[in-house]
Design a protein around this nucleic acid. Structure first.
Lengths: 461, 461
DNA sequence: AAATTTGTCTATTTACATTTC
DNA sequence: GGAAATGTAAATAGACAAATT
């Protein structure tokens, strides 16, 4: 029986078990969750070692372990051998990848809202299809879709994006998020681990959490996952794969060089890792670099969505899938979608087969360049990462700032931005930086207003 | 150390552990999976009691238990206290809800393929929209969808289907399968259990298996889940909810009476169960019965898809969601879809707001009536369940048949049907019956041919 | 109707590997 | 560089409750 001897040592968390009958590990896990959600345990706080807690509560070590494991799976805490268990920085983050409409009207530099231009090219295709006498066929079932010409049209676009592919390795999903959900649900099991950049795409964080797949931050060198980091994540966390965005990584905007891509492919092969390569921005750069998939085709799922760069409303994206992953991924996609809309697939395919998709792309690119030029001008002197065609930039803040505090100050000034903590994985403190979605404001005028306000926020500390 | 003493007793399974280093429970689970998939353990086989296996293999009881649990989560086996562990009847079933195109061309009475008629009404709406100058707005993001009028149009249809609802409780998904995936992923956790009819919709079986959610067959009385069966499933299996198709249940075609619906709602309330009510066929009957959701609105997710009864290609379905499940289900839907296509939603909404959806519905209904009349005529004398508007019928076979054997014999005769085993949950042997999708053949002529062949198959034993 | 069979669950013991100091 | 700290995982023990006989 433990005595008050513990009162002498400071313990960051001293829960009281009611021991009211139910399983002890569950009660402990619930207490921990409540204390984190209630703000009594702040992000980054180090919890007492499991053995110490076990002593304090008069429990077995494994009972504490089990409770911690439950909370880790819910994304609340993350443990590291040697350095203990910490409350995750994103423990309180929303589970949804969508922006919540609970804030007062702000100048939006937070959520990514690709410019709502007129989409003439898409409209054109719609009218073409509607005019055809047999368009009713697009409203029945079509289990065989996509057809050969549709596959070939997609393969050409993929080639342009740096991922040479063949028609038979191609699959279709209802957008990038839909594809990620299918990949995680179909190729991973709850409890499996996936390596990611220390700052990663929040949409991935939320599906992974929903499906009980743990994300592991892989150590970087010079802004990209290092071979040593990957080796460590394999040994220590037994990760099954890596999620990568080698071109204009969200949110850091880092683009990997060809050599870095080759090295990464090599490392993946060495450790027999599955790669998920998100090529979402690969079409934006004037001459895209070769995809990692082109160096490790046997293990890379390459994902190309039309949402950002062509039209968000089309809900079509393409997947290049290695042979061995095809059957399970087909099952997963049909479990999630049954089929995708033949009409939308037809529209997307025609956009690709003609050069209209590229026209749209080009228009988005030019708009992005205008906006980025303005941003470079208005924020001159600050560290603003990202190249001229990017839809967002990465603002590294001067000493003294934290990402959370900056996000809040910006909001008070009337501008929504996404601080680094929203992208953080695990329990390492996020850097002082924020993502600015320069393409989200409706026009240049509004962007100018937002950036000017932001500059004042940075300078007035 | 175990001796040969076991050789005297017959054990249905005698695996040999290689003990080559890895975890024992994993090795055992893999052996079991291999032996089931390899056909060395047939569906229905009773495995040795866990204690006996543990003795035989010189393992701890819990180690065997853990291995069995893994296989149970993969849907390979199902255990019942008292009566032991059995190999599931659907252990070898495909994980995909789609028909596989690996069979020679057969007369299709297996898969449900709603008749590919011309869909004039849908085409009409498409042309209407395409003609409008501002239709480009349907290709941007629309996080606020569905809009008020769209919700109201859907609410009217739901009312007609027997589920009075309000615009604010409404959510939208990309078809019924998509909705089921979101519900299971968002409101259930791996290992949770869901009660279902002993024969249930295969699309549910496959998502549930993918997500690690265990289906539990609830005991029936007079063809519907009984209060006692529900109570037993709660006590023994601690199910979290029930999946129901009260109108023209797939595959048995059983429709619950109003009283049965009320009693079921009452039972759900008593045991605090979540209900998933699939109203997929509720619009087909001339005057639909009140939905179970109308008796237990606080706990019922009501699902209405347009795929079967209006147009399969639209990929839109509606969900009526009780207050407390809205936030997690919204998160789940956005994790899986991000958003659904504004164009498809607009088309569906216009179909509903005008009376064109009802016209389509009516056309499908009349076609079904013609086909069912033919079926009743050609299979007169056999037990053929299902009413005049159903898309499929349930053929109960004479003594001597098993469902598997009938399915195979029919296939040899050139007709695809789905035997009861495809719908079976758990380890109880499925009844001798098969589902005939009378609406799948392209025309009445083909249907006649198929049914005539089937009759011969039945009669020639 | 009582004893036994049987699966399930929680808690415990033991071992291990990595990181920190 | 080695000892201590620390989290993770597997195997084991014990208790429980439902179903069978």
């Amino acid at each position: 029986m433990p005595f008050n001897s513990f009162d002498d040592y400071p313990m960051s968390w001293r829960p009281t078990l009611r021991r009211a009958g139910g399983p002890l590990y569950l009660e402990l896990a619930e207490l921990l969750e409540q204390d984190i959600r209630g703000g009594r345990l702040l992000p980054g706080t180090r919890l007492p070692p499991q053995r110490e807690l076990a002593d304090f509560l008069d429990l077995n070590l494994s009972t504490v372990s089990r409770a911690f494991k439950l909370c880790a799976q819910r994304g609340l805490i993350a443990g590291t051998v040697g350095s203990g268990t910490h409350v995750s920085y994103d423990a309180l983050a929303s589970l949804s990848p969508l922006p919540r409409a609970d804030k007062p009207a702000l100048l939006e530099l937070g959520a990514l809202l690709p410019d709502n231009r007129s989409f003439v090219e898409v409209t054109e295709v719609l009218r073409e299809i509607a005019a055809e006498p047999d368009c009713g066929r697009l409203f029945g079932y079509d289990y065989e879709a996509p057809s050969l010409w549709q596959r070939e049209a997609a393969a050409r676009l993929l080639e342009r994006a740096g991922c040479p592919s063949s028609a038979d390795r191609l699959m279709v999903s209802g957008g990038a998020q839909n594809a990620l959900a299918a990949i995680l649900a179909g190729l991973f099991s709850p409890g499996d681990r996936l390596g990611v950049d220390p700052l990663t795409y929040p949409g991935l964080k939320s599906v992974a959490r929903m499906l009980g797949i743990q994300l592991v931050a892989v150590r970087q060198e010079r802004g990209v996952m290092s071979a040593a980091g990957i080796a460590a994540a394999c040994r220590h966390d037994r990760i099954k794969g890596l999620y990568l965005m080698p071109t204009s990584q969200d949110p850091t905007t880092r683009t990997m060089s060809v050599q870095e891509r080759q090295e990464l492919a090599e490392a993946a092969r060495r450790h027999d890792l599955l790669l998920i390569e998100d090529g979402i921005h690969s079409l934006l750069t004037p001459s895209p670099l070769p995809a990692i998939a082109s160096f490790a085709a046997e293990r890379t799922l390459y994902l190309l969505s039309l949402s950002n760069t062509v039209s968000p409303g089309l809900r079509v994206s393409y997947l290049v899938v290695p042979e061995r992953y095809r059957p399970p991924l087909e099952d997963a996609l049909s479990n999630i979608n049954l089929t995708i809309s033949p009409l939308l697939l037809e529209m997307a395919s025609r956009l690709l087969a003609s050069d209209r998709a590229l026209q749209l792309l080009e228009a988005h690119r030019r708009e992005a360049e205008r906006r980025n030029a303005l941003a470079d001008h208005l924020l001159a002197g600050l560290t603003l990462r990202g190249d001229a065609q990017s839809f967002y930039r990465w603002l590294e803040l001067p000493k003294g700032w934290t990402a959370e505090r900056f996000e809040k100050s910006a909001e008070l000034a009337g501008v929504a931005v996404h601080g680094a903590q929203r992208f953080a994985v695990g329990s390492a403190p996020p850097p002082a930086a924020a993502r600015l979605a320069v393409c989200s404001p409706p026009d240049l005028k509004t962007l100018e207003q937002a950036l000017t306000l932001l500059r004042q926020v940075v300078e007035n500390g």
